[in-house]
Design a protein around this nucleic acid. Structure first.
Length: 920
RNA sequence: GCGGGCAUGGCGUAAUUGGUAGCCGCGCCAGACUUAGGAUCUGGUGCCGAGAGGCGUGGGGGUUCGAGUCCCUUUGCCCGCACCA
């Protein structure tokens, strides 16, 4: 019987689904293992061959872990809120829920064809009210908590009000955006609204004015990770900075913990590094400079990591958006400052970035006093200082900071070198090395000594204190969009008031159109009676990352309507053991999810500090485009090897018309009407196409649909080939050349079980040689799966098969364990053969075969003997010999053979099972 | 500019982690069978050379009996961050 993959795959997919083979329950008698894929956004284009790469890897691992006796949680769901469905809705009027539902159906069909072992009974969709109820619930919890910097965790807001009414806020160490200091009396005499305003600045989910990334084209604000190079990640529209009142999550409060807890995670170094940079911890000091605008004096606070360079601070710079600009602009300078601010405001974020090297700035008219030199220094305003970092003001040390240097040169400000012998004629000396000079009490110290010494002095003189700053900003949580979770918040006399948890979920209302209103309000403003207890509800919705931040918890207990996850389920499944997904989430989802989890951990809802123990980033699959070469002005197409003899135009040809870079000419003619009469100039009777690696996209005609591969080769071939393509973490182009090799392997494997078309396996005892092949394979496959080196384990199967094929082995003793080994990779074929072998339960319930060492021991080994690194001869020696015994034999051999014509063997180096090297 | 990674046959890759470089697959060459296929099977295939032999892991240098692997240096490519004081 031929290997009929279409029939086999359909049959076993139905069997798994009917028998719920992969359904799991908490089971305390078995160790748990949680394998998770980053769930997809179901886009209209469906899956291409690159998407399942990570899913196949995680499925192999899940199936392997089941064979190893683990109770494996391996769920799948959909990140279903998002921009594309909404934009489609704006264009066509189709409700996003409808579009999303359709897309999910298509995704499911495609996923099912690949034979994944998901427990679909646990599927979640972030756009379902029963799911987003818990997103809203988490938001309310964040609203009801504040972050105590002393305990380094979240506490109930009621604890805070109790403290306020006893002692005001002077002793509180909290992560907050409150600038006022008040006593208990002051607090107690505040109106309810004033108190609410103050508390808002302490909440973990809070409404606050901030500079946001506003995208006019999308009509919404975006988080920092949703903006790249001044353009929106979705759609690539320009983004500008605007001051707006928005809901935010106080992620920055958790910055230190996010950094510290990364230590124990098994994530790649590069990903950890990315998160570290994003969190951006820097240690330094806050320092106060006295400033005067001629009529009034102020204390201007700055942040610096180089307190040691304070003697060289020859001017100060404010960010244009800084609140100090107004206070410190003098009458004479007002018009030029206003002009500068106006021009700075007009620029988009992108323009500001591309003009990086253009030095701009304006003098405020005010002066500061350098607290260490006592000298008067001017205060400038410039775009190169960011409002959002530190205090939005800096002391400029042009000799030792390249940005300050460029600015000083441009505006002719003084530059004072502070390090002995440094050359600052062309550029600043930024390195933290050398001996200090021109620096009063710091003179003679090294930079590394001077930094703490300077800060000590700052603290002693009461000029400031040590301070750690983070680059990580609070996450902006509002989106002026329709297709997202509504905020469970209403406005009572303008005071944001949470809904009662009992009334969740707050369902997304119907609207007549998905566009903003004429007044520029978000789409939810169109909803009829969008109120709660008669009060108007919030009209923004939550961003994409809201629903994806805790989905891994929901899978543990997906239909619980009393809690996000029950204590029992959480205590059993704990956290994700293996998480597979792309790097694109390094600074978005993977930070937010960790934050969300830590918050729930503080509240006691989850038992693990970190959500994802081990993380693997699968590489991107790029497209491999094919080209044909049309001779200019003709209808002739010339083969790749001959194209240089003609003047040609390179044209994309659909990769589905090409096999092993050979064009199917008839199919090409039918592809598009303009090619119907194409003529071909061939080499050796074939038309060879050129190729290039490009992004996989429709416009390049290089999209390969997994369904097509399943139709022609089967899901098992697709799975194995995707793994065979190269290391999982490496990006690589999808290249169908070579898929035949994997397919051939499966057909050959199949034929091991069939003699003259009849299923027949022998009950004979296996020979030691055959057992050796099997046990070598067991060892290799086990090691490779555990190291996620799936490409080499596919090779190992091929090697084992080649060896068995040579001896014509069809013994059950060998083949049955091999079927189990193969089952994670090619589950359909394995299941079919497993049942043919007489088993009645699924191969996924089998036990992974034990590796027996004795079958791999070589009794003898051919040792190469090298003389000073050069191969000289080989000796066949026993493997059980000790190094000393081997050395003795080599010495005797050398003596009898007189290889060295009298030279004395000084040293014999024996590397076990490898090589022997002699030195004379 | 800062940080991380990569570089091996015509191609994708492998190398027991410092031990005979090129496993496995594609492609290619030769052959067998044939119901003529994009099937199956056998053998060959790093480069130069008729051969003996020589050369070979981006380039240069070093450590070592021994380096694709470690160190220094240089070139090229990929990814992330980018006025973060």
């Amino acid at each position: 019987m031929e290997y009929n993959f279409l029939e086999i795959e359909k049959h076993w997919q139905d069997y798994w689904s009917k028998n719920q083979t992969f359904k799991v329950e908490t089971d305390n008698s078995k160790p748990k293992f949680y394998v998770l894929d980053m769930f997809p956004y179901p886009s209209g284009a469906g899956l291409h061959v690159g998407h399942p790469l990570g899913y196949i890897a995680s499925d192999i691992y899940s199936r392997y872990k089941r064979l190893k006796g683990f109770n494996v949680l391996h769920p799948m769901g959909y990140d279903a809120f998002g921009l594309p469905a909404e934009q489609y809705a704006i264009q066509t009027g189709t409700h996003p829920a409808e579009t999303t539902g359709k897309n999910i159906k298509r995704y499911r069909e495609q996923l099912d064809r690949i034979g994944f072992s998901y427990d679909w009974s646990r599927e979640v969709r972030t756009c379902e009210p029963s799911y987003y109820k818990w997103t809203q619930w988490a938001f309310l919890e964040m609203f009801g908590h504040w972050f105590n910097n002393n305990t380094n965790k979240a506490h109930k807001i009621e604890e805070l009000t109790a403290i306020f009414s006893k002692e005001g806020n002077m002793n509180i160490q909290a992560a907050n955006t409150e600038t006022r200091v008040f006593t208990a009396q002051q607090w107690n005499s505040m109106s309810e609204k004033e108190q609410a305003d103050v508390l808002m600045n302490y909440r973990i989910a809070y409404l606050g004015e901030t500079s946001v990334n506003w995208c006019p084209a999308l009509g919404t604000v975006l988080a920092n990770d949703e903006v790249k190079e001044g353009l929106s990640v979705r759609g690539g529209h320009p983004v500008e900075q605007r001051k707006m009142k928005q809901w935010q999550l106080r992620v920055s409060a958790y910055a230190q913990r996010l950094l510290d807890d990364m230590e124990e995670l098994e994530w790649s170094d590069s990903l950890k590094e990315m998160q570290k940079n994003w969190i951006g911890r820097s240690q330094g000091a806050e320092m106060i400079f006295k400033v005067s605008n001629g009529t009034r004096e102020f204390d201007l606070e700055i942040f610096t990591t180089r307190a040691d360079t304070v003697f060289g601070a020859t001017f100060m710079v404010l960010a244009p958006e800084s609140e100090w600009v107004e206070k410190l602009t003098t009458q004479e300078q007002k018009s030029s400052v206003d002009e500068y601010l106006a021009s700075a405001k007009k620029k988009t974020e992108r323009e500001r970035m591309t003009e990086t090297r253009n030095v701009t700035g304006v003098f405020s008219g005010s002066h500061a006093i350098n607290p260490f030199t006592g000298k008067q220094i001017p205060v400038w305003i410039s775009e190169y200082v960011l409002a959002g970092y530190g205090t939005g003001a800096i002391m400029a040390v042009p000799a030792h900071d390249s940005r300050d240097y460029v600015f000083a040169k441009h505006f002719n400000l003084p530059i004072i070198p502070l390090i002995e012998g440094c050359d600052i004629s062309q550029e600043s000396f930024d390195a933290k090395e050398g001996i200090m000079c021109n620096s009063g009490f710091l003179n003679g110290m090294t930079v590394n000594e001077a930094i703490p010494a300077a800060i000590d002095q700052v603290e002693k003189r009461g000029l400031g204190k040590r301070k750690v700053n983070f680059r990580l900003r609070d996450a902006i949580f509002s989106r002026q969009r329709y297709w997202g979770e509504p905020f469970p918040v209403c406005y009572k006399e303008g005071v944001p008031t949470p809904m009662d948890v009992k009334d969740l979920p707050l369902e997304l209302p119907d609207v007549d159109k998905f566009l903003p209103t004429e007044e520029g309000e978000p789409p939810l403003a169109r909803a009829k009676d969008w109120t709660y207890n008669g009060y108007p509800l919030e009209k923004s919705t939550m961003p994409g990352f809201a629903g994806s931040s805790a989905y891994y918890l929901r899978y543990m207990d997906p239909s619980n309507n009393k809690a996000l996850v029950s204590k029992e389920a959480n205590n059993y499944w704990r956290n994700v053991d293996l998480y597979i997904g792309g790097t694109e989430h390094a600074t978005g989802h993977l930070i937010y999810s960790r934050f969300w989890n830590k918050f729930l951990y503080d509240l006691g809802y989850v038992c693990e500090k970190e959500p994802f123990k081990k993380l693997i980033n699968q590489g991107m699959i790029q497209g491999r485009s094919n080209f044909v070469y049309r001779v200019k002005g003709t209808n002739q197409f010339v083969s790749y090897g001959l194209k240089d003899q003609y003047d040609t135009t390179e044209i994309h040809a659909d990769v589905n018309l090409v096999h092993n870079d050979k064009l199917d000419m008839e199919a090409f003619k039918k592809w598009m009407p303009e090619y119907a009469n194409a003529e071909f100039i061939l080499e050796d009777g074939e038309y060879i196409c050129g190729w290039a690696v490009e992004k996989m996209s429709k416009s390049m005609f290089n999209v390969v649909n997994p369904d097509t591969i399943c139709d022609t080769y089967g899901a098992d071939t697709l799975r194995m080939y995707e793994m065979f393509l190269g290391p999982l973490e490496q990006s690589k182009p999808w290249d169908t050349n070579g898929i035949d090799g994997v397919h051939r392997f499966l057909k050959r494997f199949w034929r091991l079980f069939y003699k003259d078309g009849v299923f027949s396996v022998s009950q004979e005892k296996a020979t030691p040689a055959e057992l050796k092949v099997l046990h070598k394979l067991i060892k290799k496959v086990q090691e490779d799966i555990e190291n996620f080196s799936f490409n080499t384990s596919v090779s190992a199967f091929m090697i084992a098969l080649n060896e068995l094929y040579d001896s014509g082995c069809n013994k059950k003793e060998i083949l049955e364990p091999m079927v189990i080994l193969l089952s994670p990779f090619a589950p359909h074929m394995a299941e079919e053969l497993w049942h043919k072998l007489g088993n009645i339960t699924s191969v996924s319930q089998a036990k992974f075969p034990e590796y027996i060492h004795e079958y791999t021991i070589e009794d003898s080994f051919e040792y190469p003997v090298s003389f000073n690194g050069k191969l000289r001869y080989k000796l066949t020696l026993s493997n059980s010999m000790t190094s000393q015994e081997i050395e003795k034999i080599v010495r005797e051999h050398e003596n009898t053979q007189k290889y060295l014509s009298g030279a004395i063997v000084k040293k014999v180096i024996v590397v076990p099972k490898k090589i022997i090297n002699i030195v004379c």
